[in-house]
Simulated assay, not measured.
Amino acid sequence: MHLFEFEGKRPTVHPEAFVAPTATLIGDVTIEKGASVWYGAVLRADICRIVVREGANVQDNSVLHGAPDALVEVGPGATVAHSCIVHGAVLEERALLGNGSTMLDDTRLGAGSMVAAGSLVSPGTQIPAGVLAAGAPAQVKKPIEGTAAQFWVEANPPYYAELAQRHRTGITAV
């Protein structure tokens, strides 16, 4: 993993977290117990603060950043899927941001909600708990309960927690 101090602020990674060797953490970044940050992800907290809460996962090639003094937070058990952009946004507990999606400044994804792949959450948008949102701009489509999307919200955190442990012990540079 690539860890960089910036202007006296340095990343903090819990010993039971997994940060891939090609992930980059800069400045005021906190990775909590059981969280994972995957290959190619960049968490740049040079002018903001980034917290990846317990059991959350930030997947491959995602980028997290924010405006000055913003808090970027990936809540407990939340998922930032592959190739996402999270800029000055908050994902609440067990929320899931689908592959290739973007959340912009002052947005919030409610607990247990999902943003479908390829969506854009426009600045200031607040997506409530327990819903599926999709589109550009993302709009609430329906409650997530009883849908196929609910599977991903529930299954992804334990799956990635287990996979992260396998990578912690099983990866070898060749």
Rank of each mutant, 00 (worst) to 15 (best):
V13K: 10
Q126F: 09
T172P: 01
H82Q: 07
L91D: 01
I50K: 07
A78N: 01
F4C: 09
Y160N: 02
H14N: 14
M1A: 11
A67Q: 14
E93Y: 07
V63P: 14
Y160M: 03
H82G: 06
P158D: 03
G88N: 02
A17M: 05
R166M: 09
R168T: 09
G98W: 01
L163Q: 11
K9Y: 07
Q139N: 13
A56E: 00
I85E: 10
S122Q: 14
A133E: 03
V131K: 10
F6E: 10
N156D: 03
T102C: 15
D69K: 15
E16L: 11
C48H: 12
K141D: 04
E154L: 13
I85L: 15
G34S: 06
I171A: 11
Q165C: 01
E32Q: 14
P158M: 00
W38F: 00
Q150H: 13
C84M: 09
A138E: 02
A95S: 09
G110P: 07
G110I: 09
F6Y: 14
V90Y: 05
T22I: 00
D46Y: 07
M1N: 08
E5Q: 04
L96A: 03
P15N: 09
L120T: 11
T102F: 14
M1I: 05
A138L: 05
E92L: 09
Q59T: 02
I144K: 05
R49D: 05
P123E: 11
G124S: 12
V58E: 01
Q139S: 13
I50W: 02
S62Q: 04
V19F: 00
T125K: 15
T24S: 09
L3G: 06
L97G: 04
S83M: 14
I50Y: 08
I171C: 09
A95C: 06
S122L: 11
D60K: 01
T102K: 15
K142T: 15
G146W: 08
E145R: 15
I47Y: 10
D105L: 10
G8K: 07
L71D: 14
D106H: 14
A116G: 14
L91M: 08
A45W: 00
T172F: 12
V115H: 04
G88L: 01
G124C: 10
G40H: 06
A149C: 13
Q59N: 08
P123W: 10
S83T: 15
